[in-house]
Design a protein around this nucleic acid. Structure first.
Lengths: 216, 216
DNA sequence: GAAAAAATCCGGTTTCCACCCGATTTACCT
DNA sequence: AGGTAAATCGGGTGGAAACCGGATTTTTTC
């Protein structure tokens, strides 16, 4: 089964170039072309392609809105964004919109093929300069719990109680979930607070968030 | 100027294969090979290669520790992780350790070349199945503050009370600070919770953190 | 197999919280 | 000037939280 492609670009020359590149690939099949975002959305709605090659610099609608709309009407359609500029903000917003690939037009043709095949397979291709941005963003995030908290000498059960406690549940609710008595939950909580030198539920929540036990 | 490479793998066959692949590339130069992590660390310290091709399944030290140590002694050296398994946790930890690329051994040779060149250029290459994981992680993050809605129709006083409340202070303490009665603090709190549809101090704290009113 | 730590339960006290009611003064907007 | 919203204060109630004491059972550790 071939991967069914839709090409979207307002320049006929570029569509032609893409066609030349892609038509030689036996696993790919171009089932349509669009010049504008509106046209693209209509075609997606009609044809439900596997992958849309979407130029971001379209005249009528922004690439982000177009991508959002495409994912709305055809969630299983993967989007590979093609762009001339490697703008950081735009890149992140395209990811949020559901893009499965992001390739600058200056990339080598093989990279575009890789991106298309990755997208068709439900995976994601990121051009190295953009992957770098995403990794940077990832590293800027608070450490992944286990690393940041060297060891907080809480017992396993206490960790468990802490997580639920910090999630906003009452002693009684937790007791229910863990099938223990509410009094025991309270006791655990006391021990936790003593060990960590905390003095209220609020401090407990903040501790849990810092440690990555729960998310805000 | 050629990119100076160090190959690290405990299997001679694989090092040979890599050599065959890489020696034909005019922009790459293999300046050393290592069988173990210790050996690799020594060589990095001596040679300061531009890129280290690091197998993660080494016998002596874990790939993560090896990568961390390499980045410590030679921060400008980029690391491309080579692995047989595409383990999620391992992948994220390698990123945290400072890896610039992550390529499964099953990847096409050209992809390895792309990864090496990206790494040498200070960028990052992620194999599509792993890029997908990173994007997933990215999307799981809370939306970027400004987007989530700055305006929460809380009055100035309520914001003030919220901040202190979320900071862990009791009604009485807040009353003291703001020179109002504890009852009034409670009243404000009630109004805040009603407006925001929150129902406990814990939810309040998490809300405040999401909004950036306080820090965890 | 004994000692230590963890996990469980119980009872009691005091304080604080969450939510209900209502009220006054100030301030702003039209 | 009159209406609306904010900010302040108050009373009252039920229930949860925070802290204390002690005690038992299970698991871990040496």
């Amino acid at each position: 089964m071939k991967t069914r492609l839709l090409l979207v670009d307002d320049h006929a020359v570029i569509r032609l170039g893409l066609r030349m590149l892609l038509e030689n690939e036996s696993d790919l099949e171009i089932i349509g072309e669009a010049e504008t975002a509106r046209e693209a959305i209509q075609l997606v709605s009609d044809l439900h392609p596997n992958v849309v090659l979407l130029d971001i610099g379209l005249p009528d609608i922004s690439g982000i809105e177009a991508a959002t709309e495409i994912k709305r009407i055809s969630p299983q359609t993967a989007i590979v964004a093609l762009t001339i500029h490697e703008d950081e903000e735009y890149f992140f917003k395209m990811l949020e919109a559901g893009a499965s690939g992001y390739v600058p037009k200056r990339a080598a043709p093989e990279e575009l093929l890789t991106a298309i095949r990755a997208a068709a397979g439900g995976e994601v291709y990121l051009y190295p300069s953009l992957a770098k941005l995403l990794v940077k963003d990832f590293l800027a995030q608070p450490k992944s719990a286990d690393e940041s908290g060297i060891e907080d000498d809480l017992t396993e059960r206490e960790q468990e109680v802490l997580a639920l406690l910090a999630d906003g549940e009452s002693n009684a609710e937790i007791a229910d979930k863990l099938v223990i008595s509410p009094k025991t939950v309270g006791r655990h909580r006391e021990n936790i607070m003593r060990k960590l030198n905390l003095h209220s539920r609020v401090e407990l929540v903040k501790y849990a968030i810092r440690k990555g036990i729960i998310r805000a």
